[in-house]
């Protein structure tokens, strides 16, 4: 039963993919100018030639490294901010406008500002970190405040202490919101990281390859790199979801 559902899903997805490839192929044929819209076969050829080159893999790995570094830093800092906000209302009040500004400011403004202040390589990780912080901070903090006070009162009555309360009440209560925030933050972090690369142009990066493809009017290469971004983003999201789901089931 489960297998047949899975098979149906795979067949359906393949059908959807073929449908859109066909639409792309037809429009490309109508436009008939590969500089404006290359066809899927042309892009596939460029993609195949790209992946044969060792530099392609280095660029991808370096981009992934920068983005994951910003992502992990963002998570750690968010959790520290949550912890301090839980202890100090003053801190929470002081940091609230900062979080709101980070959340509302266009990512391009941050990238340009960051470029004035630091090196190209650090900009990407910083931008990803900034995008991750509001998502994780707000989700975890909101969940912290919705922890069942009756359970907290029980913990107090039975003298659980800080660590035991954190481990047995706070953590299980906020776990689901935390993990879903991590997944959302990865999606946004990835897109922002690539955007930061496009604007800051670090030497080895997917973003700079996208930018130079556009500058040199290599539209097929631009499409090929965009496909790479989509594939990497989906793969990382799937891996994180699998890892987190496994973690939820274990705990």
């Amino acid at each position: 039963m489960k297998n047949s559902i899975l098979q149906n899903k795979i067949v359906r997805n393949i059908f959807v993919l073929i449908f859109w490839l066909l639409i792309w192929f037809l429009i490309a044929r109508i436009v008939n100018q590969s500089l404006i819209l290359p066809g899927p076969f042309e892009v596939l050829n460029v993609l195949l030639s790209l992946i044969k080159n060792i530099n392609f893999w280095t660029d991808c790995l370096i981009s992934i490294y920068r983005i994951l570094l910003g992502y992990l830093l963002g998570i750690v800092i968010s959790l520290l901010l949550v912890l301090i906000s839980c202890i100090s209302d003053t801190f929470k009040t002081l940091i609230a406008p900062l979080i709101k500004i980070i959340r509302s400011t266009p990512v391009a403004s941050f990238i340009i500002l960051a470029l004035l202040w630091m090196g190209k390589n650090a900009v990407v990780s910083l931008i990803v970190m900034l995008m991750v912080i509001p998502i994780v901070y707000e989700n975890v903090l909101n969940e912290y405040y919705s922890v069942d006070y009756k359970l907290l009162e029980m913990a107090k009555a039975y003298n659980f202490g800080f660590i035991k309360t954190l481990k047995n009440i706070y953590y299980p209560s906020i776990k689901a919101a935390f993990l879903s925030a991590l997944i959302s933050a990865m999606g946004l972090g990835w897109k922002s990281g690539i955007a930061a690369e496009v604007l800051s142009l670090p030497k080895r990066s997917i973003g700079s390859k996208l930018y130079y493809s556009k500058i040199y009017l290599e539209t097929s290469e631009l499409f090929a790199w965009t496909i790479v971004v989509i594939i990497l983003s989906s793969t990382i999201e799937i891996l994180i979801k699998r890892f987190l789901r496994g973690y939820i089931n274990e705990n």
């Binding site: 009756k150 359970l151 009162e153 029980m154 009555a157 039975y158 047995n168 009440i169 299980p172």
Partner: peptide, 11 residues
């Protein structure tokens, strides 16, 4: 002092 609450309050 031990208290059994009106609600069960089990985790």
């Amino acid at each position: 002092i031990s208290i059994m609450f009106q609600e069960d309050r089990l985790l």
